[in-house]
């Protein structure tokens, strides 16, 4: 078992292995993303019953909630990848961490945007300082910080490490920020109607949501893998295995 783990670790550290392994995955991940989205949204938008309070506007939940969940776990993944890089100096982990940042930030933006659209019919205004929306906004700021820092530092190694340290500090901070924002929200007359505050959802409503959450994770994985593969090609562009790749043939002089 231990030996198997060590072997896995060495393999994961090898960009070439990762690249070759994931070559076959892309098609399937893309397929699952498309099928999952079609099924999830069809069920959610057409077959799920309307909400008794919010009517049809609640259906944006099928985009809003998966994006928010993936944005949050994306930050955790980024910090974990950063920690792996800091502790074991695995370059691949740094590339994965860098690949995650803009995708996580985009998910954050999607959830904020859909939250605003949802807010209009629910509260009659685009933006309310709702606890969850505010937390997501702070998460977006944290993502921006990590990306800005990575961009600003010239030395590749140092920029990866700095990004990793910042995302770890951010990771410790996220629960504190979340708690403080929730506490603050209860003080200032919370919106009477909370988004996504459903103790029990009807199964017809819940199933499409679960499908959409899983699909969004798969889509997220697809994007991260694509970005990581790009980074691998760029970083290893001088190595012979990259230059011999069929997809690189067009770029050769």
């Amino acid at each position: 078992m231990w030996q198997w783990l060590v072997r896995l670790y060495h393999r994961l550290g090898s960009p070439k292995w990762f690249y070759e392994l994931t070559s076959g995955w892309i098609f399937w991940l893309a397929l699952v993303s498309v099928i999952g989205t079609v099924i999830g949204l069809t069920l959610g938008l057409l077959y799920a019953p309307a909400d008794y309070l919010q009517g049809n506007s609640f259906r944006i939940i099928y985009i809003h909630v998966p994006a928010a969940i993936v944005a949050q776990s994306g930050f955790v993944m980024m910090a974990v990848a950063g920690a792996v890089f800091l502790i074991w100096r695995m370059k691949m982990a740094a590339w994965v961490a860098r690949a995650i940042a803009p995708i996580g930030a985009s998910m954050c933006l999607i959830s904020l945007f859909t939250g605003a659209i949802w807010g209009k019919p629910t509260w009659g205004t685009w933006w309310v300082w709702d606890a969850r929306l505010t937390s997501m906004l702070m998460l977006l700021f944290l993502y921006f910080g990590v990306m800005a820092l990575q961009r600003a530092i010239e030395s590749e190694e140092a920029s990866h490490k700095a990004g990793a340290i910042l995302s770890l500090v951010g990771l410790v901070n996220i629960p504190i920020i979340k708690y403080s924002v929730e506490w603050w929200n209860t003080l200032h007359q919370p919106a009477t109607l909370k988004l996504t505050e459903k103790p029990s959802m009807a199964p017809d409503m819940l199933w499409p949501l679960l499908i959409m959450i899983v699909t969004t994770y798969v889509f997220f994985a697809l994007l991260v893998i694509l970005r990581t593969r790009n980074e691998i090609l760029w970083q290893e562009r001088k190595r012979s295995w990259v230059q011999q790749l069929p997809e690189m043939a067009g770029g050769k002089r």
Partner: peptide, 10 residues
């Protein structure tokens, strides 16, 4: 400021 301000929120 960009890095630290969100962490000052609590």
């Amino acid at each position: 400021s960009l890095l630290i301000l969100p962490m000052y929120v609590p």
